[in-house]
Design a protein around this nucleic acid. Structure first.
Lengths: 155, 155
DNA sequence: CTAATATCAGCCTGACTGACATTG
DNA sequence: CCAATGTCAGTCTGGCTGATATTA
């Protein structure tokens, strides 16, 4: 059975449908090791960019502050991160990955990278690159969000 | 501020983020005229493929039966569709677009097509075509869903 | 005074599940 | 008896809002 042609050719619909599959694949794959999507994002971001405040983490990964709190609670509980008060700005918690968090991240990375392969399975390497490039173009264009609120480093 | 490189290059993440923008654009645009996303999908599908049962509509548009019920209630209330019992199979309702539903659809179409343009704004015509093509490839590959349940026409 | 940070409680949408009655 | 249909009630997730206390 085919999709109705009208909606089937509609980029917005194709996009949301495909994203749903991707989302499910990632969620299931991370679920196998007891993790959520936010966990990977936060740990990866921390390892790459170093310790930072909860607000900065949220801006960088497009995670709401309120969700950030819950996520960090979970990551702290499993010992993957620690919160320490920032001596320069006592409103802030500086979030740092622990050694345990790093080994945890290795595991999540494995799962996530596997999923990228499943997700893009029908595409050739060139098509994968092109697909990713187009997504970046779209995302950069539509990022009207909290990017204007910069300077979380400039205290 | 840029996105973290690790997650920023991750197709699954780019995809879900972009889809969120698309989803929001469509929802807002249809919201301006008091419609929901399902309304457009159902009306468009009915006009293109003709009257059919609620279950068939759901399969074709990937809408759950339970959500279908609510959607059709809304569309019936505004007079865009009618449900009539199927004489050949008394379990079924045959859903038909009304004249009013067609003029309604014209309005929704206008909104939705406008959004496609906003969504794909940063892409050239060729890139848009390619992007759509790749999405179709991905979607066709991952459509393990209710497509196996065919033969809603073969009564 | 205004703004940012962290926390908590709760909302809304969308996809989905389970139960049920009716008909094939 | 089993399968499909339509309906209803309700769950779970994710993105988001609002209120509050603290500090810049």
């Amino acid at each position: 059975m085919e999709l109705p042609a009208i909606v089937g050719g509609l980029p917005s619909w194709l996009l949301t449908q495909t994203a749903m599959h991707a989302s499910r694949l990632v969620t299931e794959s991370l679920g196998e090791v007891g993790a959520r999507r936010f966990h990977y994002r936060v740990l990866a971001s921390l390892e790459q960019d170093g310790p930072m405040s909860q607000a900065a983490l949220g801006r960088r990964n497009r995670i709401h502050l309120s969700d950030m709190v819950a996520t960090l609670n979970q990551l702290a509980e499993e010992g993957s991160i620690v919160r320490t008060p920032d001596p320069h700005d006592r409103r802030r918690n500086v979030v740092t990955v622990t050694a345990r968090g790093r080994t945890r991240l290795r595991k999540l990375e494995k799962q996530v990278h596997q999923v990228q392969d499943d997700l893009l399975a029908p595409l050739t390497p060139d098509e994968r690159t092109e697909f990713t490039r187009l997504l970046v173009l779209l995302l950069e264009h539509h990022h009207t969000g909290p990017d204007e609120a910069m300077s979380e480093q400039t205290h």
